[in-house]
Design a protein around this nucleic acid. Sequence first.
DNA 1: AATAAACTTGACTTTTTTAGTCAGGTATCT
DNA 2: AGATACCTGACTAAAAAAGTCAAGTTTATT
Lengths: 169, 169
Amino acid sequence: MQISTKGKYAVRAILNIAHHPKETPVSLAAISKEEGISLLFLEQIFQSLRKGEIVRSLRGAHGGYVLARDPSDITIGEIVRLLEPPLYTSSCFSKHEAVDDCRIADSCLGFVLWKQLAELVDGFLDSITIADMVTQARPEVVYSLRVKSNRMLPEKARKETSPEPLEVV
Amino acid sequence: MQISTKGKYAVRAILNIAHHPKETPVSLAAISKEEGISLLFLEQIFQSLRKGEIVRSLRGAHGGYVLARDPSDITIGEIVRLLEPPLYTSSCFSKHEAVDDCRIADSCLGFVLWKQLAELVDGFLDSITIADMVTQARPEVVYSLRVKSNRMLPEKARKETSPEPLEVV
DNA sequence: AATAAACTTGACTTTTTTAGTCAGGTATCT
DNA sequence: AGATACCTGACTAAAAAAGTCAAGTTTATT
């Protein structure tokens, strides 16, 4: 269970754009250079982002991409879903068998388990907006994010993670 | 982001064993037949499960596998981790770069994000034991599991999932 | 109008991972 | 002794992920 680089690159690239003034288009060439991601790969990723209405493109000289919506209206979940196969399509059997076709869904425990996991992940990623991540440059905000998401963890895990110091400066 | 069939098969196979009387060994041939999973593939999976001390093997005629520990002491998370690359090793860049080596961890927002996601997932999977899943054959118990895990979801997702009927009979 | 910057498209290749197989064992019960 | 069933490590095929390429189109600027 891994997040693909495509999804991770997409989030990084969007964050990069979000750190620029609202109406300034950012070229892929610039993102490629700053983030160390292949330009050609970025182009591919941005086709998905554009179709998903996360970004708008401005062609021509000094063109580039801007966010299509307010940062507070774009969630990490939305971005990730555009670039990765969804977790919730995996039934308890092969991944080619969609959840709804599961041959034993009615009596299948795995079904419920993986579905709940998918809901948990989507819920978490949908609860975090680009705006959250941008303001997060300051430590006190990072902390509040940490506490907020920590609230979602089961007791066992919560206990273990709480005493940890902040990782972000 | 997908769970591999290996992980899903492992959980199913363990559940199958858990449904048999405590000391009766269950052969892979039987599991293969009942669950429709290739015998050779099961053998491979069970090597990992044995090394991870989830099951014990009993060789010879009428042999097979039994759980190495009490079902209430085996979590889904443990099983999944034995068979899949861990989510938390993926930094915000390539998956080959371990979290601890992340070149910009200090100032990296993705770092915090993916790490928290990994903690969430592990927390969820570690909160569910094989014993939970076995008793879950009865609806009222399913419901309690649902409520329990639902508690971990952020508000937005919680609202959406709550009214749904139970999927399991 | 010409030019250059920058996006657009779809197909293509390479690499890695996943899924599954195989052969040739070893242990143990009856 | 023979059958059952686990054990081991290497192997292969198929799919997915990651990355590349070529040949465009669009538009700001000069």
